[in-house]
């Protein structure tokens, strides 16, 4: 029963796993670049979740073939694709900015280890 349910929700399960892997990476690794990687994995999980909501079995991609409401063709949800596009743009922007700060930090401090950076401050 439960295993069958999980099989029907495999995409959601995978997105949750990706989110948790990314969160764990962000929390446990001391290297700042690995933290950025963890953030990207979390974002990938969320994109997978959004795209999975939009998908339905046996539907066409949202390129409209005929005009009018009753056409007998069922399309995938286009809204989620648009939302994921926005999310990807934000992910690229935050990653680029974070990496540029990391480069500057490495030049100034010579390390990317969070623990050693904290010791440098005090």
């Amino acid at each position: 029963m439960l295993s069958l349910d999980l099989f029907l929700r495999l995409n959601y399960l995978a997105s949750i796993m990706l989110f948790l892997i990314g969160l764990h990476t962000m929390l446990t690794h001391a290297n700042l670049i690995k933290k950025v990687m963890g953030m990207n994995i979390m974002e990938t999980g969320i994109f997978l979740f959004l795209v999975s909501i939009g998908y339905a079995h046996g539907t066409l991609s949202p390129i409209i073939r005929q005009s009018g409401p009753e056409q007998g063709l069922i399309y995938t949800n286009p809204l989620l694709a648009a939302i994921v596009l926005t999310g990807i743009v934000i992910a690229v922007s935050t990653t680029a900015y974070a990496l540029s700060i990391i480069i500057k930090l490495y030049e100034q401090c010579g390390t990317l280890d969070v623990d050693r950076l904290e010791k440098l401050r005090s």
């Binding site: 349910d5 959601y12 339905a56 989620l80």
Partner: peptide
């Protein structure tokens, strides 16, 4: 939340609402 989620790939997902139908139509 996973136990309450609608099955993947079904046509009864809440996201397939009137907003989506408006855009497609």
């Amino acid at each position: 939340t996973l136990t309450e989620a609608p099955a993947f790939g079904g046509l009864d997902v809440p996201a397939r609402n009137e907003v989506m139908r408006f855009y497609l139509d």
